[in-house]
Amino acid sequence: MKKAIQNALHDRLPAVLAGQYRQTWHLMADIGWISDPNGLCQHNGLYHIFHQYTPAQDLGLHKSWGHYVTRDWKQYADLGTLMCPDSGLDKDGCYSGSGFSHNGILHLFYTGNILHDGDFDYINEGRGHYTNTLQSADGIHFSDKKVLLRNEDYPDGLSCHVRDPKVSDIDGRLYMVIGARTRDSRGCALVYECSRDNLEDLTFRQVIRTPEDFGYMWECPVLFKLDQQVFLLCCPQGVAQDGYKYENVYQNGVFRLTPDADGSWQAADFQELDHGFDFYAPQSFRDEQSREILIGWMGLPDAEYGNPETAEGWIHSLTMPRQLSVKNGRICQ
């Protein structure tokens, strides 16, 4: 399928690359639609920046993964399309996910989107939302895809909107967090623990939610720890505007997580990361210098865009990287 994409876009590319609105500071795709940063990680000294990539929707192409690498955050190499929706595990889109370097292997995890034929709402019925994985020793050449979790493997009471797996190390324990929507439209996040000996060996631990409803879906979750405090970064959808808060179509920010007596986490004190527009689906990761680095999508889903670059054959880019820290109990960037 990668070759088919290249052939289909070959004649369009020169005109797109000659456009006057192309970016110089921000990472963008050569052609087409770019969105969520995926798989952010550092592996053997090399930073990997994957991203959602739709080269041409009018050709019937679904979301794939693009791939940038850098060693110094100054010079970047575009390695093109890493993976496409070309199997029964992801035929309708290689949706967002994460990267994690462990014991010399770069592990990628992502959501495979599968739409079944029929009269479905594709929220509670009719959609496959698989958690898939693939691996690489060098970060360039990857194994075949493998499914880890299918619909029936998730906890009861969830809709078909379960996506965006992210693996993080919290105090030496490896956790995978996945965004979810319940069948009664409450946003939440699923937490699994990964075996350190085999990241594919997952044990379900809990569902993170707030005492009161806070949106109907939590996308793009990330667990991270700074200054002895564990946070959950995510993108709640369906939160009503409150003054200057929550003005975008969907929001982004962090919950402070507090442990219960049994060790499970409860979410509270949501803090927006960015009050501006065109910022969504941020993902952070811990690099080899123990910095928590965040990159977001400079765009928004389900929003009308009439920007001049759309006529040139491309739209959106990734934000500049931000280093996260904590001051007086709040996230600073």
Rank of each mutant, 00 (worst) to 15 (best):
A8M: 10
H10M: 12
H10P: 05
L17C: 11
G19V: 11
W25Q: 14
H26P: 01
L27P: 06
M28N: 12
A29N: 07
I31W: 03
W33Y: 12
I34T: 11
S35N: 15
D36H: 09
P37I: 06
G45D: 04
G45A: 02
L46E: 09
T54S: 12
Q57F: 14
Q57S: 13
L61Y: 12
H62N: 14
V69A: 03
K74Y: 09
A77F: 03
A77E: 15
C94K: 09
S101L: 03
L108E: 06
D117R: 14
D119R: 08
D119L: 03
F120T: 08
G128N: 04
N132E: 03
D138E: 07
D144E: 15
K146Q: 14
K146M: 07
R150K: 12
L158D: 15
C160R: 07
D164M: 03
I170S: 01
I170K: 00
R173T: 04
Y175S: 00
M176N: 01
R186S: 02
A189E: 07
E193P: 02
N198A: 14
L199M: 02
E200W: 10
E200D: 14
E200A: 13
R205F: 05
I208R: 00
E212Q: 10
E212K: 11
E212L: 11
Y216R: 09
M217W: 12
L223M: 05
F224P: 02
L226Y: 10
D227T: 15
V230I: 11
V239F: 04
D242E: 15
F255P: 00
A268Y: 06
Q271M: 12
E272H: 08
H275T: 07
G276C: 08
F277S: 11
Y280E: 05
E292I: 14
E292Q: 15
I295N: 02
A303N: 08
E312C: 10
L318R: 02
G329W: 04
C332Q: 13
Q333Y: 13
